[in-house]
């Protein structure tokens, strides 16, 4: 058992510098810093994100998204002209996540931009990252864009929604890569593994890649729309550095009924997967009903960004104390 810290002093100093540089950019952009509760009576319904439950029956939040969107709705209700963009550096908690790039407790930098869509937000992230690379005296590594459906189509000859688990399994077999026995008929899970095994390794290892235009089945809290070829997609993107996933951005869904339907679908899926049935955030749904302004929002993993900046290969190197030593 060790009482000592995981991160070196140099890495703790770099972490402080990173947070300072972020706040500097947010201030310059006039984005308001907020703090929202870590404990909530509601939980995320996402079937693959596991909340930590407390003895009081509350859940530790897995992202500050619901509370921040409630604030956006409140401000828009009173005066749209003066409503500020919002950001937060929030500790978040996800049970059962542990590994080289995962710690059960980590920090999300989450921010919302009023009037932006996902395409505007991509440029916004790029501007923040450029500012940070400059603050660390690093040359800008560049950024490219990869479309989810196109990446799948190039390799499998079909669009994501036309695929079956069997077709993906067959591809794994031909490539002599292991495919889990327990995949069942979970097409999205099979797509996740396909991306990880065959698409991400082709991303440039020393620069950023934005993966965008997700399949409709993976829309989560993003709006649906059309890509440049007129195919229906989710207006959602993720930012990678090499193969490391850094951020997840949405053109935020405003329609409360659709959102409720997606939560309910999540709960059905949870029941199938034998995952706990959690209470969906009714206050968030009420806020959507009252009216969320047009906006785009993104969550960025702070520790992973620190890892990339410092070329660290394990998240423990940037954590004062990892989950095992907490």
């Amino acid at each position: 058992m060790s009482w000592r810290s995981n991160a070196s002093l140099a890495n703790l100093q770099a972490g402080a510098r990173l947070r300072r540089a972020i706040r500097q950019w947010m201030d310059a952009e006039q984005i308001l810093e907020v703090c929202t509760p870590v404990l909530s009576r509601y939980a995320t319904t996402d079937p693959h994100v596991h909340s930590v439950v407390t003895t009081t029956g509350h859940f530790l939040h897995t992202s500050p998204e619901f509370a921040m969107k409630r604030l956006l709705a409140v401000h828009a209700e009173s005066d749209t002209a003066t409503a500020p963009d919002l950001y937060q550096l929030a500790p978040v908690f996800r049970a059962e996540e542990s590994g080289r790039f995962h710690n059960s407790e980590f920090t999300l930098l989450e921010w919302y931009r009023l009037g932006m869509n996902h395409l505007d937000l991509m440029r916004d992230v790029e501007r923040l990252l450029k500012h940070l690379w400059k603050a660390f005296f690093l040359p800008w590594p560049g950024i490219c864009v990869c479309r989810y459906g196109v990446a799948i189509h190039e390799r499998l000859g079909l669009w994501p929604e036309q695929l079956s688990v069997e077709a993906i399994e067959h591809y794994f077999e031909r490539a002599q890569k292991p495919f889990p026995n327990a995949m069942g008929q979970d097409l999205d899970a099979a797509l996740d593994l396909f991306m990880d095994e065959f698409v991400l390794p082709d991303f440039s290892s020393q620069s950023f890649t934005i993966l965008t235009d997700y399949p409709v089945s993976q829309a989560a809290l993003a709006r649906l729309g059309e890509d440049v070829d007129g195919r229906q997609i989710a207006q959602r993107f993720e930012v990678y550095f090499g193969q490391v996933e850094l951020a997840n951005g949405f053109h935020e869904l405003k329609d409360g009924d659709t959102q409720r339907q997606r939560f309910e679908n999540d709960l059905v899926r949870r029941r199938e997967l034998d995952e706990p049935i959690v209470p969906m955030d009714e206050r968030f749904l009420e806020a959507l009903a009252a009216g969320l302004p047009d906006c785009a929002g993104i969550a960025l993993g702070l520790e992973r960004l620190h890892m990339v900046l410092g070329k660290h290969d394990h998240i423990d190197q940037v954590l004062s104390f990892n989950h095992a030593r907490a």
Binding site: V49, R100, D188, A189
Partner: peptide
């Protein structure tokens, strides 16, 4: 063994 998980997706252990 390595834990693999896309932010919003299914987790795997390779």
């Amino acid at each position: 063994n390595e834990f693999v998980k896309p932010g919003k997706g299914q987790a795997f252990t390779r």
